[in-house]
Design a protein around this nucleic acid. Sequence first.
DNA 1: AAAAATAGCAACCGCCATAGC
DNA 2: TGCTATGGCGGTTGCTATTTT
Length: 276
Amino acid sequence: MGRQPCCDKLGVKKGPWTADEDKKLISFILTNGQCCWRAVPKLAGLRRCGKSCRLRWTNYLRPDLKRGLLTDAEEQLVIDLHARLGNRWSKIAGRLPGRTDNEIKNHWNTHIKKKLIKMGIDPVTHEPLQKEETNSQVENLSQQFQSPAETEHQVPPVQHTNDMASSETSCTPTDQNSSGDESNSLSAICDQIDDSLISYLFEDDTPGLVDAPWEFSAVAKENFNKVDMVLPSWDESCPWLLDCQDFGIQDFGFDCFNDIEMNMLNQLDVKNDQTS
DNA sequence: AAAAATAGCAACCGCCATAGC
DNA sequence: TGCTATGGCGGTTGCTATTTT
């Protein structure tokens, strides 16, 4: 006999998460930690699959997540890492604190891919597209990926610097033309990435970076503490949480979460108010 | 102003490696 | 030791918002 099934598919809710579900999940995780995802839905009072809970937490609710678009520096780092690691999004995400594999994957597919193609770089191989093919290929790919609005301000292609060693010898067909604003800014960003940092980042399975258990970073803690709002009393907003106190969250190493959790829950309330 | 097309992103699906029974 | 659930990952889908026609 193996383990019990993850969840019975019957009665399991699917689709977008509601603010109430988020609230329940956050409270549960912050109180009890990430132990057994299969048990989470039941214990947290959610009609969701454990897998769905895990995804929602890691991709959206985790308090150390940065939200919003990737910065230019992050984007360049993603390109560099992708050149070396391929579509190993979780590994790439491991090198970008506060970013999830899903977020990076989406950003790659919606933004970076197009940008590289416009630059005449194959987003899969990170090699320059063949000169004889480039014109027609870029044209085709651009048509495929480019919105009409983008065609108005064509971005001059730049030499791709994902591989510091090879980039010196491999020139894109459009290198001569790499004096545009974007190319300059990207080059500047590339220059900022120190070689030693890169080699450090690319060391596979760097302890504490890759496959490390999630921890609440000091920055994230600070961010959540920065939220300026009036805190309701604990038992006022989450009476059911009191029942969880018996677990002793110190046992899970989450003793830093009390005030943070309240801030998160309040943020959700605010979000709720705004959307309703 | 309305319909159609496109972009962006959250969530799901299915596969795989690992671990529990 | 083999079977099966779990957790994690990458690929894909589908919904919503935005832009274009």
